[in-house]
């Protein structure tokens, strides 16, 4: 009887922890401090470096695995009118497309962060002072989501509006092109 009680308690605990682990799809960090609180440090814009090149280390984006942040980024993408220029589904219009593998100002999260904050000379507005760091990071997360750069289970699924393109979750990853590969490296599609 006693043993039975303990075992059932253990069973419940075990079940609960399994259930809890199932919920733990992602770690929700709601108030993420950007790695470089200063909005302009350590961001390299060009692949071309004179002399010996520093091996580029990709920024670990705090929201890369955060479904909540990616979904919030989508909301901001519409509300802040990013969609008006880059297309609701990221196909581009006034601005360049975001659902492909071409990145004019870099695909690294830190590059996208500074593109949004600083603006770019050919029409990209500067959002400095208009959005919190947190919101910019959410946008960065969604911008990367448009070309399928996140793991599948955290991506956005089908939207509510008239469908324009395959939903984010089922898009194939569009690996950003980069010149950082050593000479002789071969890529196949």
């Amino acid at each position: 009887m006693r043993f039975g009680r303990i075992s059932s308690l253990l069973l419940v605990t075990a079940l609960l922890s399994i259930a809890a682990a199932g919920c733990e799809r992602e770690e929700r960090r709601f108030r993420e401090v950007p790695p470089a609180a200063d909005q302009s440090t350590n961001v390299v814009q060009s692949d071309l470096q004179p002399g010996p090149s520093i091996v580029a280390t990709a920024t670990q984006h705090p929201y890369d695995d955060n479904a909540y942040a990616i979904a919030s980024g989508k909301r901001l993408y519409v509300q802040m009118n990013c969609a008006g220029c880059h297309g609701l589904a990221g196909g581009g219009s006034i601005g360049p497309p975001l659902l492909d593998d071409k990145w004019i100002y870099g695909s690294d999260p830190s590059n996208i962060f500074s593109t949004i904050v600083e603006g770019r000379p050919n029409g990209m507005p500067s959002w400095k002072g208009k959005l919190s760091n947190d919101q910019v990071w959410q946008l960065v997360a969604y911008v990367r989501d448009l070309s399928g750069l996140h793991r599948k289970d955290v991506r956005n699924s089908r939207g509510d509006n008239m469908a324009a393109v395959q939903d984010e979750q089922n898009r194939n990853r569009q690996t950003p092109r980069s010149s950082f590969e050593p000479p002789g490296s071969v890529t196949t599609p």
Binding site: G87, L88, A89, G90, G92, S93, L99, V165, Q166
Partner: peptide, 17 residues
Amino acid sequence: GAIVAGGIDPRDSTAAL
């Protein structure tokens, strides 16, 4: 002609309004 001049991705049917 924005699809050509602006390099719009044809996968997005709603692009260019």
